[in-house]
Amino acid sequence: MHGEYKVPGGKLVVVDLDVRGGQIADFRLSGDFFLEPDTALETIDAAVNGLDETADVSAIATAVRSALPPGTQMLGLTPEAIGTAVRRALVTAPGWRDLEWEVVHDRAVSPHMNLALDEVLTGRVGDGRRRPTLRMWEWDSSAVVIGSFQSLRNEVDPDGAARHGFDVVRRISGGGAMLMGAGQIITYSLYVPASLVAGLTFADSYAFLDDWVLQALRSLGVEATYQPLNDIASPTGKIGGAAQKRLANGGVLHHAKLSYDIDGQMMSEVLRIGREKLSDKGTTSAAKRVDPLRRQTGLSRQAVIERFLETFGRLYGAQAGHISEEEYAEAEGLVASKFATDAWLKRVP
Rank of each mutant, 00 (worst) to 15 (best):
Q265Y: 05
K238C: 02
N230F: 06
R289S: 12
A336Q: 12
T92V: 05
M136F: 14
A224R: 14
W212N: 09
R301T: 05
G123P: 01
E223R: 15
K338Y: 05
V15L: 05
A286G: 02
W139Y: 14
V156M: 08
P69H: 13
H2W: 06
A320M: 04
M178N: 02
L77Y: 11
D98Y: 13
M266N: 00
A340N: 10
R135G: 07
P37Q: 11
E325A: 15
E42H: 12
R129M: 02
S324K: 12
E102C: 09
M1E: 03
G321F: 12
T283Q: 10
N154V: 00
G76F: 08
K346Y: 15
P111S: 13
R65S: 12
R295N: 13
H322D: 06
V64A: 02
T92F: 02
I186W: 04
F166W: 04
V252L: 15
A25P: 00
D32T: 12
A340K: 11
G128N: 08
I60Q: 01
V222S: 09
E102N: 14
A116E: 05
N114M: 10
L12H: 06
G264D: 08
V168K: 11
R129F: 02
G282L: 05
G10R: 07
V213N: 11
L117K: 12
H164P: 00
R295G: 14
G313M: 03
D32P: 04
E102A: 14
D159T: 13
V7H: 05
E276T: 14
Y316A: 03
Q184W: 09
K11Q: 10
K277H: 08
E223T: 12
L315W: 09
R153Y: 11
D38R: 15
S300E: 13
D261P: 00
I323S: 06
R153D: 05
E4T: 10
L271V: 11
G3A: 06
M1A: 08
V197A: 04
E80M: 02
Y328P: 00
E330L: 13
N230P: 01
Y188V: 07
R153Q: 08
S142Y: 05
D52E: 15
L75A: 10
D280P: 03
A25Y: 07
L99D: 08
A331T: 04
L17C: 09
M1P: 08
Q23L: 14
V109N: 01
L309H: 11
S337D: 08
E42I: 00
E330H: 12
I323Y: 07
Q319W: 01
L217Y: 14
I172A: 04
I186G: 04
A61V: 01
H255G: 06
M267I: 10
V197N: 01
K277P: 03
